[in-house]
Design a protein around this nucleic acid. Structure first.
Length: 226
DNA sequence: CACCAGGCAAGTA
DNA sequence: TACTTGCATGGT
């Protein structure tokens, strides 16, 4: 009953929800984020910066194999040792520093307890994540959404590319205004935000490359008209 | 061979 | 403020 009503609202007057429905119908459940623990997800969020997920998995597997995928396991290594573990993820020197910076912030602000970070208010936890050198808005929001399971909409380059090419948002919108557009149009629902971002990445990989955009058979063709 | 991947910081003009 | 560049491996 209720879901029928939701669906009618979507189809009537909300392009952002209609886009979600099309992607969801086309691709199905995405089941992001792979990762057994919150820490693993957080580490993955840093490692995947500008990096293919497959390479991140290799880096995470290295940490697991060495029994280093834990707060103390990472803390106990110096930057150069950590860098060797995460080498397959690329940018391994900067990412090793970024991971250490992130853990250090949790030590400084939250007694080294990841759960305390997640129990903090959204505003405070996001602010503290953003002040870490190496954590920008997308990484911070990915941690909050996928590790802390907070209703935060993650924006990435794909989101901007797809929605601006479909003229659903301004071409020059920055991160915060793009995020605000989604928050304005969508119900505040962690599961929806989780799935939506994953679907955007999935459709973008298939149809929304940087160059030579090839949109034949794209599930979003003429979404603004139908 | 070229291009890209679930960014960010620092430097330059 | 608005670009540009460094970081780097591995897949297509």
């Amino acid at each position: 009953m209720k879901s029928q009503l939701d669906r009618m609202q979507r189809e009537n007057n909300n392009l952002f929800l209609r886009v979600f429905d099309r992607l969801s119908a086309h691709y199905g459940q995405q089941n992001w984020w792979p990762g057994e623990t919150a820490l693993e997800i957080m580490v993955g969020a840093v490692l995947t910066q500008n990096t293919n997920w497959g390479n991140v998995e290799k880096a995470i597997a290295n940490l697991k194999d060495g029994d280093r995928l834990s707060f103390s396991g990472i803390q106990s290594m110096d930057v150069s040792m950590l860098a060797e573990y995460i080498r397959p993820a690329g940018y391994y020197n900067v990412k090793a520093r970024r991971l250490k910076n992130l853990l250090q912030m949790i030590v400084d602000c939250y007694e080294g307890e990841l759960s305390f970070l997640f129990e903090d208010s959204l505003e405070e936890s996001r602010k503290n994540l953003l002040k870490v050198n190496g954590v920008g808005p997308e990484t911070a929001d990915s941690i909050l959404l996928y590790a802390a399971r907070k209703p935060v909409f993650v924006i990435d380059t794909y989101t901007h590319r797809i929605f601006s090419r479909h003229q659903l948002v301004d071409e020059n919108a920055d991160y915060d205004s793009l995020q605000q557009a989604f928050l304005d149009k969508l119900p505040e629902d962690e599961a929806l935000f989780n799935e939506y971002h994953a679907l955007i990445v999935t459709v973008a990989k298939e149809f929304c490359k940087k160059k030579k955009p090839r949109c034949t058979n794209c599930p979003l063709q003429r979404v603004e008209e139908n």
